[in-house]
Design a protein around this nucleic acid. Structure first.
Lengths: 263, 263
DNA sequence: ACTGGTATACATGTATCCAAGTATTGAGAT
DNA sequence: ATCTCAATACTTGGATACATGTATACCAGT
């Protein structure tokens, strides 16, 4: 079983990321430097409420690991940065807190949630159970049109990999899994999957090695292949394998990377 | 497939409930009468933040269907009622909104979320998938101690039924399912189940006929029986059957009850 | 050198005020 | 009688001021 550890991020193998201002060393959480926050951009006047937009900007930054785990998130620094009042910022942070993306401790501060192996276990379990259940339903109503659509998504994903578009890769990946859910009318279930997925996505974005991207492509293809041949069991096996790989990423960590893990 | 309908509650078969002030007829949402809110009690000075406590009180009232679906929830009426400012009430309602228990439309009002069959479908699917997956794990590590503990819970549940303690029944029911999750160290997954369950719980609390309670008891027993004999497949079948019954509650609705459904 | 108490700067939580949008109401015109 | 439209009374969203708790920095006493 995996230990309960928190991963302190310094640098990902494939991606650069904005560093938290030495969270462990620096005494004062919020100095003149806001630790990566200043790189965030907030378009005033766009659609939606201010709180929604603030939430969206912060969420994207956290999920895409542009804001490192542990980074202090001060309501004041955010509302200075975005030129809005504390009220919508507070609402946004509250939402992020409920999504498990931000830890807020009263009178102390709020911080980007660390990458916890525990959370990864739960996230994996939930996602796996739900996606397999969905796949079972989809297998029962599989059509050629569906197959064609899924293959198109895979091709799109191949293209963005070729172009070196990392963000695009993750978007297409989400499309793949999302579409399977909508095939059997389980949009509500997809929302639950999406909620559980963020934990894995953050982990993945941080640790995934570039060579992994092509493997994902093949694994997606294997699922569709099995569905095309009408072998539901094989499809489940393939999808299960695909989802389990995230754990293997943990196993692949180099010694140096492992050494960054506290306790 | 079930249609997308909203259930407007007038009175449950087994329970009395505070009526919304004729939501469909009354023009003004918030009159001098706040539609059931006045029955809610808020203990000042207890532990936790004000926002947390407000959230807890409202959540319990909604889940236990003491506040009827469709009841207007005005921030002002709440903070008058509880003698607190709007800010923590706002935070509480935002949380409830994210939990799907309250629908808030800007500049119009917030309302206790209606009972949607759609939501029930998703809720059922999620709960079923996750609980079955957990049961599969538990079956692999089943011990006599676990069996004894579960049987004790069932006995407790029998006692509260005997005593006519409806709230106690639902608490014990939650204990039963919760304990299974903790046996295999899936507390995080239980939280997800709990989130999905509220939709079903509200439905159940509203429609469940008294004779159903004893059936639940037998079904719980059947699951444990199967686990004791080491028949994992039978256990899954029994649990699946148990969870599916909620849909049957919908089928059992009398014609008069059905007529209350709009569209 | 080290320990202990205090001052200060920061955080989030709460209260209140203002802005902007929606739905009902009721009067007046058709 | 019916329709149009302005006034009004609500709502939630946002901005700001204040309350309260925490952690560091600093300094005095040992």
């Amino acid at each position: 079983m995996y230990p309960s550890i928190e991963i302190k991020c310094d640098a990902g193998p494939g991606f650069d990321l904005v560093r938290a201002t030495d969270v462990s060393e620096e005494a004062r959480p919020f100095g003149p430097d806001t630790g990566g926050l200043e790189a965030l951009r907030f378009d005033p006047g766009r659609g939606g409420s201010v709180a929604d937009r603030v939430h969206g900007v912060l969420r994207a930054a956290i999920v895409e690991v542009r804001l490192a785990p542990g980074t202090p998130i001060s309501e004041n620094s955010i509302c200075r940065q975005f030129s809005v009042s504390r009220t919508p910022v507070r609402a946004a942070i509250q939402r992020l807190s409920e999504e498990g993306l931000v830890d807020v401790s009263p009178q102390r501060g709020s911080f980007v949630a660390p990458l916890r192996i525990d959370g990864l276990r739960d996230s994996h379990f939930i996602r796996r159970s739900l996606e397999l259940a969905i796949l079972r339903e989809v297998a029962g109503i599989w059509t050629e049109e569906m197959s064609a659509e899924m293959r198109a998504i895979i091709e799109d994903q191949a293209r963005v990999i070729e172009a070196g578009n990392h963000d695009g890769f993750f978007e297409e990946d989400e499309r793949f899994h999302h579409r399977l859910a909508t095939f059997c009318g389980r949009d509500g279930v997809w929302e639950a999957i999406r909620g559980a997925k963020v934990t894995m996505t953050r982990f993945y974005r941080y640790w995934a090695h570039p060579e992994r991207l092509a493997e994902v492509l093949r694994e997606h293809g294997a699922v569709i292949d099995a569905l095309d041949t009408g072998d539901a069991q094989e499809a489940e096996r393939a999808l299960s394998l695909h989802l389990d790989v995230v754990f293997n990423v943990f196993d692949r960590m180099s010694e140096e990377e492992r050494r960054n893990l506290p306790a």
